[in-house]
Design a binder for these strands. Structure first.
Lengths: 148, 148
DNA sequence: CTCCAGATCATAGCCAGCTATGCATGCGGG
DNA sequence: CCCGCATGCATAGCTGGCTATGATCTGGAG
């Protein structure tokens, strides 16, 4: 329980650092298209299925609702999406891609692939698969954790 | 280059998500001590060597200087550190732990170990070692990446 | 029909990260 | 000596994450 202090906070610290590096690598590649990293996941979800509600987007992207609300506000400001009210349920709004967003889909996908490629340089497919598997297992562990 | 869109943004997305889960798991465990995740790495660095300058802390923790400036401000507000001016160089200040911070060192280290333990449940030591190795390699790749 | 529980979204306020600047100090060359 | 560059820190302003709370609407129980 009271070991020597873990070398550089080990896993949690390293993963946090790696996540920041991924975000930065993505940022430089998508900046030319006027998109920032936080908008990326919602955009991918909408490319897959346009017209999702905010709630559905939260579930798919694994982000809390207020975070999504802010992100969508910026995306609307930046001309990437519109919110169209649901006539059958006035609480909901459907998020729809603009022409501008659809026009840059391929470029954004390419950017994501480029980041993945840069990160995994020198890694075998088996290593990448292992990494994803271990990542998924730890996510499940921590989700089940809940607290204490 | 223009593959099908990567399944859930693959690596970058998963790592981001995992990092958030780590931060949350840590947050619930250290909240009782009045510490938040962003203060954790600087505290560990200071436990190892007290009296570092802000610049040295940035280098050790891999955080940009303005981020550290804000974090230290909150840590000072929360009574975890003091900044004492360097008499021999009036630009610098040394960050020193308070008694309160030193008093909770063991609890904080335990919390970090508990988070690591929760995350790595069901993983072998070899798997954890592999994970850290692959993480380090990707970090090197992305650091070398720079942009484009 | 009414009213209340639940769902959807928005807002407030915080932490944590970043870039771009600005300001003061220190230091080395000429 | 001094001038200019480098260094250390602070500030401004942004993104993006969170919890807590509020407002509005739906739908069902009674």
């Amino acid at each position: 329980m009271t070991d020597a202090l873990p070398r550089e906070e080990s896993l949690g610290y390293q993963v946090n650092h790696l996540a920041r590096l991924f975000a930065q690598a993505l940022a430089v590649r998508i900046a030319p298209y006027g998109v920032v990293p936080g908008q990326f996941a919602p955009l991918l979800a909408l490319f897959e299925q346009d017209g999702l509600s905010q709630r559905e987007l939260c579930d798919r992207v694994r982000i809390e609702q207020p975070t999504m609300a802010n992100t969508l506000q910026r995306m609307e400001r930046d001309g990437l999406v519109r919110r169209v009210p649901d006539p059958s349920d006035r609480r909901r709004a459907h998020v729809r891609l603009t022409e501008r967003a659809r026009a840059i889909e391929q470029e954004l996908v390419s950017a994501a692939l480029a980041v993945n490629g840069a990160a995994t340089g020198g890694l075998t497919d088996a290593e990448i698969a292992t990494y994803l598997d271990l990542t998924a297992r730890m996510m499940r562990n921590l989700e089940a954790d809940g607290g204490q």
